[in-house]
């Protein structure tokens, strides 16, 4: 199992290390690999960073058009969430607004309720975007002060905060449970109950 983290710009190493931790916890054999150009991975994570920078570099290297066509599970956090919307990679039926809470001094930490999760999740919001609306098959998973901060469409997840900056692996576990055709797929349903 190869868990790719898009390594163009942003907090790539934070995702790589929480993925390693999650794999160990879920007892999945696999590696976290930084993705620069080779998209030979089973799932892809688009990290936090500056969405304008990441999208410019991806367009130059051709990665942008390749990711557009992906049907593997993809998760985007913060900048990654911006990039997954219909105006960029178009991976999910949603609109996203950048820096929706304001500048850095309005960045915050807060506990949020996530669908399927038994306990609150500690969200770290840094110059965070919000998901303005979802449509089609896209579903809301979490809100903060009535604004959508996490959504899912089939095997794609977008969130406006940073699970990679915490030690809580539940979101990464949830994401990895979306991998289909996994030999230990039966375990997934089991994991679903323990988020």
């Amino acid at each position: 199992m190869r868990i790719g983290v898009l390594a163009v710009q942003g907090d790539v190493s934070e995702h790589l290390s929480i993925v390693e931790k999650t794999l160990k916890e879920m007892k999945i054999k696999g590696n976290a690999v930084p993705v620069k150009k080779d998209l030979d991975v089973d799932v892809l994570i688009i990290p936090g960073g500056e969405s304008t920078t990441i999208s410019k570099i991806m367009k130059k290297t051709g990665l942008f058009d390749e990711i557009k066509k992906l049907d593997i599970p993809v998760m985007g956090t913060c900048a990654g969430c911006v990039l997954m919307d219909r105006k960029h990679l178009g991976l999910m039926n949603m609109g996203v607004k950048r820096n929706a809470f304001g500048r850095q001094k309005e960045s915050f930490e807060a506990d949020i309720k996530i669908k399927w999760f038994r306990k609150d999740y500690h969200g770290v919001f840094i110059r965070a975007p919000i998901i303005t609306h979802v449509y089609g098959e896209c579903r809301t998973l979490a809100r903060f002060e009535n604004r959508i901060v996490m959504a899912q469409e089939d095997n794609k997840i977008a969130l406006s905060f940073h699970p990679e900056l915490t030690n809580d692996t539940r979101i990464h576990r949830y994401f990895l449970s979306l991998i289909k055709n996994r030999r230990d797929h039966t375990n997934c349903t089991k994991f679903r109950t323990i988020f």
Binding site: A7, E14, G49, E109, I126
Partner: peptide, 23 residues
Amino acid sequence: VELKKLRFGSELIKRGFAKMQKG
């Protein structure tokens, strides 16, 4: 959300901002 759990300007938030600049 309970407001008491809302935090601004913590070390995590400040260092986290810097991490987003990496690369």
